[in-house]
Design a protein around this nucleic acid. Structure first.
Lengths: 277, 277
DNA sequence: TTCGACATAGTGTCCGACAAACGGACAAAG
DNA sequence: CTTTGTCCGTTTGTCGGACACTATGTCGAA
């Protein structure tokens, strides 16, 4: 008898019915036979076509739903949707937290991404982007003036810059990192009185550079800004190599669908307002 | 009767039962009451505790499963699991493809990430990492010698470097980008005869720099390598600003769980072998 | 024509049921 | 002593049917 190892025997494919339902629908969406905005047939209809029970269909649909490929408007019919930030970012963040990623790890990535975002933003920012950034600066100034923490606004600033960079790969990659660095900044601010003003100055310079289209200056200042963050963290004797935690406010976990037109719904989650309430 | 507005009435809890089941279990996992490796109660047990039907529990479980928080070993009991690359990367890639991300967008991000990975790898690479990289070099040389495409091996090389960087945030961020750039490289190779050798040279230099711990040289060569990629793409007159497509081979979609100990299962997906069959 | 009651369709949830797969125990065979 | 075959209770995958609730659309009344 031949040795079992020699035959290329792998786990036999035993996809359960609900999994097949999921894959089938997923396939139709990926290959374009179902496009964003299309309505899915009713559960009963699907059950008949696939020749499975409605319960089975439902289990498959839960998967689709969870992956952000379909969405329910109201309690009604399912609609095919482009996955949004709010579908992907929380998962990635959670995974990173569960794997006990450290501040240093996140920071290294941020140091590579945020300046890049700033540079690209200088080339691609629209008036609307500048407006949003400007509003953010305003709010940051006020918050600092009141002695409150600008951490959330800083996170938003970085997000807005990335958004202005018009690079969805970049947006998507940096979003979880930005999200997880927020608690770190939140912890840092009260320990360093000069942190607020320095942060605001950096933001202003970055904004200005973006406004006049000076990519390199935007890059430099953002770089400085991120370096500064780490410096401050060290200065405040906060632990660089300890796991970060999840930001408590999951304010945008399920952002309300402001835009009724699902097709044109962007990858982004906040339509231009404050991140939270 | 009091004015309805005056009572602090917020949107009533409209989360459906299966969603609550999901959130409940998710919460237990996040806050550590359920830890990786723990077994979940049986479906019937859960149904009784939550006082819902088993079908409802199942729908919630599908969600958990889809997010990679639990996993099924065989058809048996559910086990709490740390989300792995193979759970997260495909979703992100899919989202990017659906949003019709262009080569240029991906490339910009790669240009920021890959050199960083190389630099960090120079500091953190273990002998085992070097071994894997070395094996990859060997394989690449052979493949090029035979006139085949080293695209898959290049993707693996980048993955291995990132792995050696010991930065999970970086690994996770760059993985989808690397995956989506593969088809681009695949298209490029046959058009440029010199691409293969140049690629191999760059890999060799990066490897060498990592081996001797020279972070800056590793950075430089990787940077050059990624720049080269874009140059070649341009040279071959391939479209920089058109949407990329999904790599056809979903070879590692559901990587077999080599490590029986789920707890220590790393974020990574390939345990050190070839990416595909 | 406008408005509100009614019919309808579709989802969320539940119930009960059964075959198949699994895990473990245990006996028989080598 | 290891391997193989068998049995059994447990758990999952799937099924059919059922009902309440809620959008949605229809139609008659004002």
């Amino acid at each position: 008898m031949a040795n079992a190892d020699e035959l290329g025997l792998s786990k036999v494919n035993v996809a359960s019915a609900y999994e097949q339902v999921f894959r089938e629908l997923e396939g139709r969406i990926l290959d374009g036979r179902l496009r964003a905005g299309d309505q899915l047939p009713t559960e009963m209809d699907l059950a008949e076509r696939f020749e499975v029970n409605r319960s089975t269909v439902r289990e498959g649909i839960r998967r689709l739903e969870s992956e952000g490929l379909v969405q329910r408007l109201g309690r009604r019919r399912l609609v095919v949707t482009l996955p949004r930030h709010s579908d992907l970012t929380p998962r990635t963040s959670r995974a990173l937290v569960m794997h006990q990623v450290t501040f240093r790890e996140l920071w290294h990535v941020a140091l590579a991404m945020e300046p890049l975002a700033a540079r690209l933003a200088a080339f691609h920012a629209t008036p609307k982007d500048l407006e949003a950034l400007s509003a953010n600066l305003e709010a940051t100034a006020q918050v600092i003036d009141r002695g409150e923490s600008p951490a959330a606004l800083d996170t938003e600033f970085q997000s807005l810059v990335a958004e202005a960079a018009r690079n969805r790969a970049l947006s998507l990659s940096r979003e979880p990192i930005g999200l997880l660095l927020r608690p770190a900044l939140e912890a840092l601010i009260p320990l360093l009185p000069q942190a607020g003003p320095r942060l605001l100055e950096a933001h202003r310079e970055v904004y200005d550079a973006i406004r006049v289209g000076d990519g390199e200056r935007a890059f430099e200042w953002m770089y400085k800004h991120v370096i500064d963050f780490q410096r401050g963290y060290e200065l405040a004797q906060l632990p660089l190599d300890e796991p970060v935690s999840m930001p408590d406010a999951e304010c945008d976990a399920r952002a309300p669908q402001r835009d009724p037109d699902v097709v044109s719904a962007s990858l982004q989650v906040h339509g231009g307002g404050r991140t939270c309430g």
